[in-house]
């Protein structure tokens, strides 16, 4: 039997969504301009986008690029970060490079990469990969660096080789921190995807947004914003569920992402 209190706290994010949509609705009614449709109008336009074949293909292609970019990014960044965390030489080799590339807007590389690789999937996926990598490397690095030295000594005493220690001690102990990096990386992958498509203006969800803007289909603009927003919230919530399962043993941490770090 769930008490009234826990019910409210479970539903709080949903209530917040409804509240924000309500504010939007009221704001739009007060402003009353064509360029700012009400929340209800925008929501009504959502199904028509999702049933339109071309838009759907566009959005799914975006998501596919994002999945590949994220997957490759995570796959390469975690080992790099872990090695940086356990070896001073590796860390001092890569750290300045990462520091310099940190404030570079990854999506801004889009025009240059397009110049080299054309406007195909490769360029867009590469940009997403670059966007995902930094936070994952950084958090894996932090996680691996914080591993208790004595735990590794115990491992060595039990006869684990260096590689086994990395896989069986460093990786699991750094996992909570790594997953925080992955969560940030996931949100960043979505952001980079949308932004690069907005800049390239070729295809994808970001392009639909700006095409609709140019053609004055304001309902579609706001409906797309809802779709992209829902993707972000949905992906984040799904990842958070996965994270909770994987690191049930770890200390309960702050449950909101300090994204971008």
């Amino acid at each position: 039997m769930m008490s009234w209190r826990t019910l409210v706290s479970r539903l709080a994010p949903l209530l917040a969504c409804l509240g924000l949509l309500g504010i939007w609705q009221i704001g739009a009614l007060i402003l009353d301009t064509d360029s700012f449709p009400t929340a209800i109008d925008a929501l009504r336009a959502v199904p028509s986008i999702l049933t339109d074949k071309e838009s759907l293909i566009n959005i799914l292609a975006s998501l596919r690029r994002m999945a590949i970019g994220f997957g490759v990014g995570v796959g390469l960044s975690i080992p790099l970060g872990l090695m940086m965390g356990r070896s001073r030489a590796v860390a001092s080799f890569f750290n300045p490079l990462l520091m310099i590339t940190y404030p570079v807007p990854k999506a801004a590389l889009m025009p240059i990469i397009m110049l080299w690789l054309g406007v195909g999937d490769l360029a867009k996926t590469l940009v997403i990969f670059l966007g995902v990598s930094l936070p994952v490397v950084f958090h894996s690095f932090q996680g691996a660096r914080a591993v208790e030295e004595k735990m590794l000594w115990s491992g060595a005493a039990m006869g684990l080789s260096a590689g086994q220690r990395m896989l069986r001690i460093v990786l699991p102990s750094a996992l909570p921190e790594i997953l925080i990096g992955c969560r940030t990386g996931l949100v960043l992958a979505l952001i980079t995807m949308i932004t690069s498509e907005m800049i390239a203006r070729q295809s994808g969800a970001g392009n639909i947004l700006f095409n609709a803007l140019d053609m004055g289909q304001y309902d579609t603009v706001f409906a797309m914003i809802i779709i992209v927003g829902a993707m972000g919230i949905g992906l984040d919530a799904a990842f958070e569920q996965l994270r909770k399962r994987l690191v049930r043993w770890s200390e309960p941490r702050f449950d909101l992402p300090l994204s971008f770090s």
Binding site: A12, Y218, V221, I233, L256, S259
Partner: peptide
């Protein structure tokens, strides 16, 4: 806290750049 927490929870993972077209319009 009771008001801010759920709102932040919803808005923090939202890709803000998607709001840019709306901001341009407004």
């Amino acid at each position: 806290n009771a008001v801010v927490r759920p709102i932040v929870r919803v808005l923090a993972p939202l890709p803000k750049v998607a709001l840019y077209p709306a901001l341009l319009l407004l």
